[in-house]
């Protein structure tokens, strides 16, 4: 470690590294959880003679694409928020943060719409393995999204209330956005493998 800097800076630097390591391990754990879903899906799909099985129709791309749009935009806006917090631009952080939060809520809303549209077509979670996969995957993802949205809500509220943006701990901001972007990547993978391909 750099011995010339003051002890305070080393400690600060060190705590950041510890936080990053912890966040990486946490993301590895979440990855393994979703990996099992992808593994199960792959096995079902490759062993099925036709996909979707039992002569079901494919789920339309409309609502899932909307979800993808929402979540990708929410990640992009979050990156903007991160940058503005670092630069101390409070106005940008506040309003883009709010936008990002709204996009997050919209994503969750679009998932509910997806489920409703499936139910309207008579596809319930018990209607075979294709339906089970869609519901199971999206439920788990939304469960994690709810957690992420709560964290983001806390973050945006803090951005609004805190007098100086410097007071926000940099690793907290980084961890929350890492989690958010991670879930975004997972969604894009779900979108591509389950809905598009």
């Amino acid at each position: 470690m750099v011995a010339k800097e003051s002890a305070m800076n080393i400690d600060h630097e060190g705590k950041n590294i510890a936080n990053s390591i912890a966040m990486i391990i946490t993301l590895v754990s979440f990855t393994m959880l979703f990996a099992v879903f992808f593994l199960g899906y792959a096995i079902f799909r490759f062993n099925a003679q036709e996909w979707p099985p039992m002569g079901m129709d494919r789920v339309g791309l409309g609502i899932p694409s909307l979800s993808t749009l929402f979540i990708v935009l929410s990640s992009i806006t979050l990156v903007v928020v991160e940058r503005s917090i670092k630069k101390g631009e409070k106005k940008v952080a506040k309003y883009v943060g709010l936008l990002s939060l709204i996009l997050g809520f919209s994503f969750i809303g679009s998932q509910f719409t997806l489920w409703e549209s499936l139910r309207d077509r008579g596809i319930f979670q018990g209607t075979g393995i294709y339906a089970s996969l869609i519901y199971g995957f999206t439920w788990t993802h939304v469960g994690h999204m709810v957690l992420a949205v709560i964290l983001k809500l806390w973050l945006v509220a803090k951005v609004f209330r805190v007098p100086e943006l410097k007071e926000l701990k940099e690793n907290v901001v980084r961890n929350i956005s890492a989690f958010w972007h991670f879930l975004g990547v997972v969604w894009v993978l779900i979108y591509i493998t389950l809905f598009v391909l």
Partner: peptide, 14 residues
């Protein structure tokens, strides 16, 4: 633990 307990967790969820 960090790598494989989530696998069990996913199984339990399913």
């Amino acid at each position: 633990n960090a790598i494989f307990v989530p696998v069990l967790g996913a199984g339990c969820l399913l």
